[in-house]
Design a protein around this nucleic acid. Structure first.
Lengths: 220, 220
DNA sequence: CTCCACCTGACAGGCACATGACAGTCGGAT
DNA sequence: ATCCGACTGTCATGTGCCTGTCAGGTGGAG
C-alpha cells in the first residue's frame, strides 16, 4: 500500500500503531526521536509521516516544520496528547495534513491515514510558488517574503497565484476575470482593479505592473 | 491580425469581446443590431463576423443567412445563449463557420476565432518581433533596444508592430490607416503623421523613414 | 519663390486605472 | 440571537496618459 514513517518516543505506542498500519498492508518504519525522523525522511520518501508531537529533544512542532522544509510535498499526520485548538491550528497552519488528539481510536487513525493517502497526488503537486524572494504557500494561503509573512484572502490568493505562475508575462484582464472570477464577460465594474489595489497594499506594490489596455504583470 | 465584426446588442459583452480580440492584435468593429451588421458587412470585408444570436429586431438566424446571402464567402462564428443541439445544427447547416454557446471562456472564443481565421499558418503567436537590435515584446507592449526598455501606448505599439513586421518595405498611408486605425477612408486629419512623430520621439528617430507621397518605412 | 507634404508643439476631451468609502454577506464568537 | 470582523463587490471621485485636432513651421520639388 504505502510507505509510512511513525515517529514516537514511546516504544509501546510506536509498536502499537505500526502493527495496526501493517495489518492494513502498509510498510512501516519507525523513528524514536525527531532527529532520526528528519534523517530518515531526508533519505527516503514516505507517503505519510505519523508524528507524535511530544518528543524528547527537539520540539515536535519543529520536527513538523523541519519535515516540510525538507520536502514541501511531505504529508504529516500529527498525533498529540495536547488537544487544544491552538495547537491544532498551529500545526495545520504549519502544513500538517491532519491532526489527531490522543487518546484516539485505532480505527479512526487508520481511516484518517487512508483518507490522507487517498487524496494526495492529484490536486496540488506543488506546495510553494516561488518568484524571486517571494514565496506563496499554496496550502496555507500565506505569502512569505524574507521573514515577513502576509495572510491573503481567497481572492487575493487566487489572483496572486495566477500572476505569479505567469511571472514576467502579462496576464490579460480577460484572462484574469475568466480564471479568477469565472466571468466570461466584462462585469461592468472595476472588481479587478480594486482587487489588484488591495493586493498591492499587502505586498511591495511595484511587483505588480499594470500594462495599460492589456492587463497586469508580476515581476520580481 | 484580421478585420473582425462583433455583433451584439449588449454593449458590455460586445465591448468585452472586442477587447479580447483587440488584445490579440485584431482590428474590431461592432454592430448593435442585425441591420447595422448587414450594412457594415455589405460595405467592408471582414475576416470573420462574431454574431450573437439573440438580437432585438431581426432574428439572429436571419442575420446569419443574410450575411451569407450577401457574401457567400463570409465566415460567421455564432454566439448563443441557446445551447441546444437543434439550434447548433440549424446554424451550422445554414453555413455558420462555428458555434459557441454562452457562457463561454474567452480563451476558447479566441482559440476558435484564430482557428477560423487561420487556414494553415499562425501556429504560435510570436512573443518577440526582432529587427536589428530592436525587439518588440508583443505581449508586454514594450520595446527593448539593448538594455533600454521603452513603454509604448496602444497605437504606438500597433503602428510600430506593423512597420517592423514589414521592415525594409514601404507601408503606404492607406495601408497603415486601414490596418492600424481601421479606417477605410482618409480621415482628413493628420493622425498618422502625429502618431509617427510620437513614435519617433520614443525610438531612435532615423528608424522610421518617410517616403514622400507614399508612406513610411522601418529600417534597422 | 510658391506650393504641398510633412513635422511638431500645444491643447482638450476622453478613457483607463487608482483609491477611498460604503454596503451586503458570511462565519465565528459572545 | 446578536454582534463583530473579515471579505468582497460597487460606486464616486481623482489623476494621469492617450489620442485626435489644430495651427503654425519647415523643407524639398517644380
Amino acid at each position: 500500500m504505502a510507505h509510512l514513517l511513525v515517529v514516537d518516543d514511546e516504544p509501546r505506542i510506536a509498536r502499537f500503531v505500526s502493527r495496526a498500519l501493517e495489518s492494513q498492508g502498509h510498510v512501516v518504519e519507525t523513528a524514536r526521536t525527531g532527529e532520526e525522523a528528519l534523517r530518515k525522511a531526508a533519505e527516503q520518501d514516505f507517503g505519510l509521516v505519523i508524528l507524535d508531537l511530544l518528543l524528547p529533544g527537539i520540539d515536535g512542532y519543529d520536527v513538523l516544520t523541519g519535515l516540510l522544509a525538507q520536502d514541501e510535498s511531505a504529508r504529516v499526520l500529527v498525533l498529540s496528547a495536547v488537544g487544544d485548538v491552538e495547537s491544532r491550528v498551529q500545526c495545520l497552519r504549519a502544513g500538517a495534513a491532519d491532526y489527531l488528539a490522543k487518546p484516539f481510536a485505532v480505527a479512526e487513525l487508520l481511516a484518517r491515514v487512508d483518507s490522507r493517502l487517498a487524496e494526495p497526488s492529484a490536486p496540488t503537486p506543488q506546495r510553494w510558488l516561488q518568484v524571486g524572494s517571494m514565496r506563496l504557500d499554496l496550502r496555507r494561503r500565506v505569502l512569505l517574503d524574507g521573514d515577513r509573512s502576509t495572510a491573503l484572502s481567497q481572492r487575493e490568493f487566487v489572483l496572486l497565484g495566477h500572476l505569479m505562475r505567469r511571472a514576467g508575462e502579462v496576464c490579460t484582464r480577460d484572462e484574469l476575470l475568466s480564471d479568477v472570477w469565472g466571468f466570461c464577460f466584462d462585469p461592468g465594474s472595476n472588481v479587478l482593479e480594486v482587487s489588484v489595489a488591495r493586493l498591492r497594499g499587502k505586498i511591495d506594490r511595484w511587483h505588480i505592473e499594470t500594462v495599460r489596455n492589456v492587463g497586469y504583470c508580476f515581476s520580481a
